[in-house]
Design a protein around this nucleic acid. Structure first.
Lengths: 255, 255
DNA sequence: GTGTGTGAATGTCTTCACAGCT
DNA sequence: AGCTGTGAAGACATTCACACAC
C-alpha cells in the first residue's frame, strides 16, 4: 500500500498501516502530557486510556514501530516520545504557509500546538491587499503575489488552504506549481492535484452531517421498541471508557 | 455494528456502513452543485469524479440506500439529493450550540454551509463575560451561565466545542448533563462521555502530523533508489483523478 | 506475577467483474 | 449498447488470547 513496500519479512519494515499512522499523533500527545508530569513509564493499558483507544490496538500499533516496551513493566515515556516523533518526521521542523487569513486562517495561525510540534508558520497569505502588513498572531500577512517566492525561498512543502471554496482550487494549483507536495484543505471542495501530492481535508459541515445521521438514528430507535433490540443495553463497548476516538483512515496517498 | 442491527436479510436494512455514511455528505455536496446547474441525471462515473471517489465504491454506497438509479441511464439528481438528505437526517433542522467564541468559534459561526444544510446556530456561548451581547455572525454571544437553559429550551442535541483544551472536558460534561448527545470537538483533548453520546473530533495538529509523516516518507524515498522500487512509477492510482479523497472511517459510535 | 509482542481469528471496507435491466 | 446493482475476492483493520520476557 505504501508507495514502495518491499517484500521484506514483516517487522519494522517500511509499511506502517495508515490507521496506525493516524493514531500516532494521539499517542504522542498523551505521552507528552505524561512527560510533562515527569512520569517515567506507562503501561499499554494506561496510555490507551489516555489516548482513548483500547490497549490491544495500541500494542499492535507500537509493534509496527519496533519493540520499544519492556515486558512486565511498560513503555519508557521519554523514549517513546522520541521514537514516535522521529517516525512522524517531527524531529525536523516543517515550514508551513497558511493561505486565506479570515477567521479560520487567524484561528490556525494562533493555534499553539502548531509551533510546539515541529511546525513553523513560514507565512500568512491573503488575497486582500488591505490585509497586507497587518500582523496576525505576530506574523505580518503577505499578499498572494508573494506566494511563489515564499515557498521557494523557505522550501515550504506543506500548505494549508483556508480560503473560501471558490478560490481553493486555484490556490492549490499555485501551491503545487511552486513546489508544495502536502496540502491540508479546509475549503469545502474536492481538490484536484497531480500524482505525488497528498491532500487531507477537514470539513466542518461533513462532520456535522455525520453526527446528524447518528443523532437521527438514536431518535428513531427509541420509537422502535418493536425490534429485537433491548432498549439501550445492546450497544457495544462492554466495559470502560475507550473513547472510541474516531478512527480516521486516511489512505490519502494519491493523485 | 450499528446499535441494534436486526438480522434482516440484507438490502435496505438499517445498517449503512460507517465508511459509507462518511461519504454521503460528499455525494450530497456534488449533487447539490449539479442540481444548481439544473443537470437532471448523472452517471456513477461522473458523480464519482466530482466527489473524488471511484465509481464502484459510489455504486456500492448507494446500493445500501436502495436502488435509486436507472440502468443504462444513471441517477436522477433531485431524487438522490432528497434521498441522501433524508438518510442523513437533514430534512429536519438541527439546532446547534457553539461553545468558545474565539477565532475558531467565530469562523464556525460564520461558516455558510452551516445554515444551508439543516443546521441552525441556536446560540453562541463564551465564558468571557465581556463578550456577552457582542454579535458574531449576527448572533449575540451569551455567557456560559445560560448554557443549560438554552439547551433545554431549544432542544439542542448537537454541541460544538471550540474552547481551549483545558476547558473542553468541563464544557463537555455540562453539555451532556443538559441533554446534548452529539459533540463535535475542536479542542485537542480526548473527551470522556457516557455511553450513548457520540463524539467526533477535528484536530488540526493531528492532520498536519499525518501529512508530515508522508512528506518525510517521500523525501526518504528519493534517496532510497536502492530498493526494488522504480523511482516514482510504482505509485498506485493507475489512471485518472480519483481524489483518493481521504476515507475517514469514523466508527465513532460509542461511549 | 505482570504486561508486552504477536500469530490467528474475526470483522469491515474496497475492488473486481459481470449479470441483468432499460 | 450502456450503466446500475451486487455477489465474490481481496485488502485492510481490529480484537482475541496467550507465549514469553522481565
Amino acid at each position: 500500500m505504501a508507495t514502495g513496500r518491499t517484500h521484506r519479512p514483516a517487522t519494522r519494515s517500511r509499511g506502517i498501516p495508515e490507521a496506525t499512522v493516524a493514531r500516532l499523533p494521539l499517542y504522542l500527545r498523551a505521552l507528552t502530557a505524561l512527560s510533562e508530569r515527569s512520569v517515567p513509564t506507562v503501561s499499554s493499558e494506561e496510555l490507551a486510556a489516555a489516548a482513548g483507544v483500547n490497549s490491544a490496538k495500541l500494542r499492535k500499533d507500537f509493534s509496527y514501530l519496533g519493540s520499544y516496551g519492556t515486558r512486565g513493566v511498560g513503555y519508557d515515556v521519554e523514549y517513546l516520545v522520541y521514537q514516535i516523533s522521529r517516525e512522524l518526521g517531527l524531529t525536523q521542523d516543517w515550514p508551513v504557509v497558511i493561505v486565506g487569513i479570515g477567521n479560520l486562517g487567524a484561528a490556525l495561525a494562533n493555534y499553539g500546538g502548531f509551533a510546539s510540534r515541529g511546525f513553523r508558520v513560514a507565512a500568512l497569505i491573503d488575497a486582500d491587499a488591505g490585509m497586507a502588513g497587518k500582523p496576525v498572531a505576530g506574523i505580518p500577512v503577505q499578499h498572494t503575489d508573494e506566494l511563489e517566492k515564499i515557498i521557494q525561498d523557505d522550501g515550504v512543502s506543506i500548505g494549508v488552504i483556508a480560503t473560501p471554496a471558490g478560490a481553493a482550487q486555484q490556490v492549490c494549483d499555485r501551491l503545487v506549481a511552486a513546489g508544495v507536495t502536502s496540502i491540508l484543505n479546509f475549503a469545502p471542495t474536492v481538490l484536484n492535484v497531480p500524482e505525488g501530492v497528498d491532500v487531507r481535508k477537514v470539513d466542518l459541515s461533513i462532520e456535522l452531517q455525520i453526527l446528524a445521521f447518528h443523532e437521527q438514528r438514536k431518535a428513531g430507535e427509541e420509537a422502535a421498541a418493536d425490534t429485537v433490540v433491548p432498549p439501550v443495553a445492546a450497544r457495544k463497548q462492554p466495559h470502560s471508557t475507550d473513547q472510541g476516538p474516531d478512527g480516521d483512515v486516511p489512505a490519502v496517498m494519491q493523485a
